[in-house]
């Protein structure tokens, strides 16, 4: 029952990614291991967004279960991950959704 709830939530959230999910998937367009993902997220968000290790490992486990990312290399304790084709599609959909949102805002707010 717990398992089901977890998966359900993941699927639901994958319709629209949360901020940490979005950034982690962006970072994983190149193969990276755990801590490197945290650094990359900080880099691509220009320091505006950080992912803590607790949040990161839970999300990695969930993504892997959902086959959104896959293991790229296993160097003992530090595993390297890379986004899958399915994950790339999810990320692209989210990017387009966000862009639509921003464009709509632009028309009205005009910033």
């Amino acid at each position: 029952m717990i398992q089901k709830a977890g998966l359900g939530m993941a699927r639901e959230q994958l319709q629209s990614l949360t901020e940490p999910m979005y950034y982690i998937l962006l970072a994983l367009t190149t193969p990276l291991h755990g801590y490197a993902i945290m650094q990359k997220v900080e880099e691509i968000s220009a320091g505006n967004f950080v992912v803590g290790p607790g949040t990161l490992y839970r999300l990695l486990a969930r993504f892997e279960k959902e086959k959104i990312i896959q293991q790229y290399d296993d160097d003992g304790r530090r595993k390297t991950y890379l986004i899958t084709a399915k994950g790339y599609q999810v990320l692209l959909n989210e990017y387009r959704r966000l862009k639509r949102l921003v464009d709509s805002g632009k028309n009205i707010l005009g910033e």
């Binding site: 755990g34 801590y35 803590g52 290790p53 607790g54 490992y57 839970r58 486990a61 304790r77 530090r78």
Partner: peptide
């Protein structure tokens, strides 16, 4: 920081991430 042990996730990998992050 107190964390409940997460049985679904490989502990070693989790610990490596925490360690690298300074915990």
């Amino acid at each position: 920081s107190i964390e409940p042990l997460d049985k679904e996730v490989e502990n070693e990998e989790k610990l490596a991430i925490y360690e690298d992050a300074g915990w």
